[in-house]
Design a protein around this nucleic acid. Structure first.
Length: 263
DNA sequence: ATGACATGTAAAACATGA
């Protein structure tokens, strides 16, 4: 089975690219982030025509997550228990969607950006990650044999070599010790970040800004990552970062990451 | 060539992204 994650930066702007990606790779489950569309306007038909079931969670133009699966979709869960809220009035954002597909529990996650270190959004990001860690620790404790994947855009570069120039990021989000500790806390709870295990090369990125020729210069960040439970990590045979998806017309600024699972 | 921001909302300029 193949499971992929992709921050697509608007599903309506890139429906054709998503369809072509599924046809080319044969991915069975695709977790999307930043769909930027309310549920009623999600372009379901092209995917259903390919044999995928479509579950979505989105409000208007911000955030938005979805899961496409051709191996079944069960026990859909919008948000995770204890997920922090944002805004005034405070509301849950469309950043987490869980579903069991082909026996694997998949969570499509769009971690808050954080904006600036002194912005309230940064504290929200850390609280969101802490609450997710607590939920995830509970899931694994309740079922040590669980096959669960936390996939998506974590908006954290765990290592200095996950960005092109650490000096550029000095004083900015994505690389602070607090964010890295919040990320490492999942490993301390027994989860394994499987993309690094299978693609260990340094300066291998999943995101390149649209500005400043970041992609041609290969000035990117590795921030689209996958934490797996031990039982699922043992099934991962390979990971592919689909760098070619950053090329061509109207790409997302992120590329898909594909996991190959043993049967 | 992989090329110099992009998206949705709303109807111009703005919030957001990282």
């Amino acid at each position: 089975m193949r499971v992929a994650t992709w921050n697509i930066n608007s599903i309506r702007a890139r429906t054709d690219r998503a369809v072509a990606f599924l046809e080319r790779t044969g991915v069975d489950v695709l977790a999307l982030q930043e769909t930027k569309v309310k549920d009623a306007a999600f372009p379901r038909e092209p995917f259903e025509a390919l044999g995928y079931e479509v579950v979505t969670h989105g409000f208007s133009q911000w955030n938005g997550v979805a899961i496409l699966s051709r191996v079944g979709v069960q026990d859909v869960e919008v948000g995770f228990p204890g997920m922090p809220t944002w805004g005034d009035p405070a509301a849950a954002e469309a950043r987490a969607l869980g579903a069991t597909c082909g026996g694997v529990r998949v969570w499509s996650l769009y971690v808050p950006n954080g904006r600036e270190i002194d912005d309230p959004h940064y504290a929200y990001k850390l609280a969101w990650l802490g609450a997710l860690r607590d939920a995830a620790a509970g899931w694994l404790e309740a079922d040590p044999q669980a096959q669960t994947a936390l996939v998506g855009d974590w908006n954290i570069a765990p290592l200095d070599t996950d960005v092109w120039d650490v000096d550029f990021f000095a004083g900015r989000t994505h690389v602070t010790p607090a964010e890295r500790e919040a990320f490492a806390a999942f490993a301390h709870a027994g989860w394994t970040e499987v993309s690094r295990e299978h693609v260990p090369a340094e300066h291998t990125y999943t995101y390149w800004d649209y500005q400043q020729l970041r992609f041609p210069k290969n000035q990117g960040m590795r921030i689209d990552l996958t934490y797996a439970t031990p039982a699922l990590a043992a099934r991962v045979q390979g990971v592919t970062i689909e760098r070619q998806e950053r090329k061509g017309k109207q790409p997302s600024d992120h590329v898909p990451v594909v996991l190959d699972l043993a049967d």
